[in-house]
Amino acid sequence: MTRKLWPGILAMAAIVVASNILVQFLFGQWLTWGAFTYPLAFLVTDLTNRIYGASQARKVVLAGFAVGVACSFIGTQITGEFGPLVTLRVAIASGLAFLTAQLLDVAVFSALRGRAWWQAPLVSTLLGATLDTALFFTIAFSAAFTFIDPANDVSWANEALPLLGTGPIAPLWMSLAVADWGVKLALALLALIPFRLILRRWTAKGAIA
């Protein structure tokens, strides 16, 4: 792995580690602090893709996946008030969602890289973030996937409540998913600012792939 990728790898690792820690702390009723750090992984992936190309971006993604697996393993060994900090279902959901969503991001970005500068990062992040949210919350908390880890009680996540406190009746995990998705979409728009600024710097260096 070339030295040029180390900034992206370190940034991705920092985001994954921070998100795994911050997800333990609530922000309001529907979110955790990790919801605000994790979407930055898409910014790292997109910048790597734009500057160095898709194959290099996949390497950064795989490095982030490896760090995530390590974090999940450590979390399974730490017991909190309600059991392990990371259950088998959450570990599987987290890893599968991250890897699938990030690779989709790389593919979509590559397909749109010849268009206006903002289209590739925005569309790829929106699609990747949507897939990430759907996979993670469904696998981790839906009653349909209880077979993955029958000993893990997720009845709390399937309690029927108004969606986000005001909408139609739905399992609690759907409110958590919608809130998380909304944050990802907002940050996808905000991330265009640092993406553009960093892209200008690298364009001036003539280092764009």
Rank of each mutant, 00 (worst) to 15 (best):
V183G: 05
A120M: 02
Q29N: 15
A207D: 07
T45Y: 04
G128P: 11
A144K: 08
A97H: 01
R196W: 11
V60Q: 05
A63E: 00
A207V: 06
L31T: 07
D153Y: 10
A91M: 09
R50F: 13
Q29Y: 15
L103V: 12
T100H: 11
Q77M: 12
L96H: 07
F136M: 02
R196N: 08
E81A: 15
A11T: 03
G114N: 12
W30K: 12
P121Y: 01
L5H: 10
C71V: 04
L10F: 05
A41K: 12
N158D: 01
D180P: 10
F27E: 01
P162V: 02
L40M: 13
I21E: 14
P39V: 02
L96F: 11
E81S: 13
A97R: 02
F65Y: 08
G64M: 06
L40C: 09
T100W: 10
A66G: 14
A170R: 03
A157R: 00
L43F: 00
T37K: 11
V123T: 14
L199A: 06
V67R: 05
K59G: 12
S110K: 14
W156E: 11
A134E: 00
Y38G: 05
Q77Y: 03
T133R: 10
L10T: 07
M174A: 09
R200M: 11
T32K: 09
W202A: 13
F27K: 14
L22R: 06
L163C: 03
V108K: 05
G206A: 05
L104H: 01
E159Y: 12
R50A: 05
T146P: 02
T130F: 08
D149R: 00
F145Y: 11
F42D: 01
A120K: 13
S72H: 04
S155G: 11
G114I: 15
A140L: 03
R58Q: 09
D180K: 13
S124A: 12
L47M: 08
L5F: 12
A41I: 03
G80A: 09
A140H: 07
T146F: 06
M12V: 05
A97W: 01
L135E: 04
I74R: 02
W33K: 12
L127F: 08
G28F: 06
G53L: 02
M12H: 08
L104Y: 03
A134G: 00
F73C: 05
I208W: 15
I15A: 08
G206Q: 03
